[in-house]
Structures are given as C-alpha cells and as structure tokens.
Amino acid sequence: MKQCIKHALLLFLLVGAVNSEAALRVVTTTEDLAAIARAIGGAGVDVVSLTPGTRDPHFAEAKPSMIRKVSRADLLILIGADMEIGWLPPLLQSARNGRVQSGKAGYLDLSLVVPLLGKMAGPVSRAMGDVHAKGNPHYWLDPRNGARMARAIAIRFGELDPPGQADYQTRLAAFEQTLKQKLKEWQTTLSLIRGQAVIAYHTSFIYLADAFGFSIVDEVEPMPGIAPSAAHLSQLVQQIKSEQIDLLIMEPYYERRSARYLHDQTGIRIAVLPQSVGALPKIETYVDLFDRIVAILSQTGGG
C-alpha cells in the first residue's frame, strides 16, 4: 500500500514537470475573449477558453477540468458584469491561484473598459427576471467594443510579459486596422437593415443593434431568462402584425418552437445568429464572427 502511494506521488510529480512553457498562460471565460487574446498574443501566448462558443456563458458549470486550467494560468480574462457570477467565484476559490484573484494583475475584467448599455436605473428585483444591474454583459457583439477589449488585453499582456510588449502592440495595431476596415464593410453591407425594427429572443443583441443601427423592439422571452408563455407569444403576434416587424434574431442554443410559431403566424423571418466565436462551425476569429453575422443578416434581413 505504502509502495503504491509512493509510486502514485512520483507519477504526479513527473507528469507535472513536463508542462509546456509559454510566455503567458491565459485562460478566458469565453471563446470571444480567447479569439481576441490569440490575435494579440500570437504563438508565444497559450490561450484557452473555459466555455465553448456553443453554450451560454451564463449557465456554464464549474467542472474539475476548469479548476486545472485556472490553477495554472498567469492571466484570467472575463466578461464581467455578473456574466460568470454563477460559476466563476467557486472556481477561483478551488483553483487556489494567487495570480488570478480579483484585484491582481492576472485578473482582467473587460466589462470595465467598455461602455455598458442597459444599466438598471432604480431598484432591481428578481421579479423582473434575469436582469443585470451592472448593465447588459453581451458587449462583445459590438465590433467597436472588440477594439477596446483588444487594447486592454494588449496593455495587460505587456505588463505581465514586458519583453513581448512591442510585439503585442504591433499585433494590436494590425487587429485595430483590420477591424476598422471591416467595420466600414459590415456597416455598408447592413445599410439596408439600418433603422429597422427587430425582435430578439433574449436581451443579448442590444450591442449589435447599436453598432449597426437597427432597433430591438421586443423579446420572445417576456422577461430575461423567463420562458415565453402562450399569452406573451400571442401578444407578439399582434405586435409583429401591427408594427410590420420583419425579422427575429436569436442564438443557436435557444429552442426554435417559439420562433417557428411566430413565423407560422406572421411570416416573420428568422435569423439564427452566432453569438460567439465557435457558436457555429468555421467561426474561429473575432472577425469571422461578424463576417458570419453580417452574411446571415444581409441574406435574411434588409427587406
């Protein structure tokens, strides 16, 4: 028995010694953050996302494998604004990594570098559903915020890894340049949708609407995070007909029955938009994400 334990301990230590050496080990809570971090960090920075792009980062589950990743990280990048409140605090506690605790240089909350929309004025009650008092956390869906996030990431990379600072700034400049050009392209492509009234499934597209100038007039969910009732759906049918709303946008992970019902009743067109890098196949970079969103919107919307 004692021999057995000794061997097991030895095995642990040996395996632990063969870890790969990167300039920075970065853990992000979502694939969008990982994509931007990879664009800034290049090959020398090891970036891994805790949640896949196909899932709602709000409802991730703290799995043991995540503890492993966070425990070895030099930097943790998160969405913030309570997006990860349900699973990140216990994860941080279990990971026992002093470098990435809140307040340390290895903890980067990007909700602090973007202007948050949808902040709640007045008291917030759970009777209002899943509202975020600090503001809507889906801010990565505005490419202008992408530039802000990239800049904050580049600054933090430079602080944690001073020898790489110049490289990070160079990559940041290239990223910003691409985004600037692309933004014009996307806005031109989506000029038809400008000013249009749109219905969303969840309150997750307000930043996208802000970036491309359309307005979200209502949601399929009666309150954030509350499943649509028959009464709410029939009310939506009336609204879609009377206001002649022609487009419904939703994430791939939401149920399609409600949208299909609204389509059958009113003929409203449905655009299933990737909300994150990795939410649909072949979306690997932050630019890919908007390329796809714009492609889907220009095919479906803009009538």
Binding site: S102, A105, R144
Partner: peptide, 20 residues
C-alpha cells in the same frame, strides 16, 4: 473606438474590486 479607448480604467484600483 480604434485608436484610443475612451474609458480604459485601471482594473487594479481597489474601488473596482467588488464590482465583478
């Protein structure tokens, strides 16, 4: 948006600690 983020705050300042 592209050259100079208007509101990059210092995330390590203590006043921001409880916010997230």
């Amino acid at each position: 948006t592209l050259a100079n983020p208007a509101i990059v705050r210092d995330q390590t300042s203590p006043s921001d600690l409880p916010s997230s």
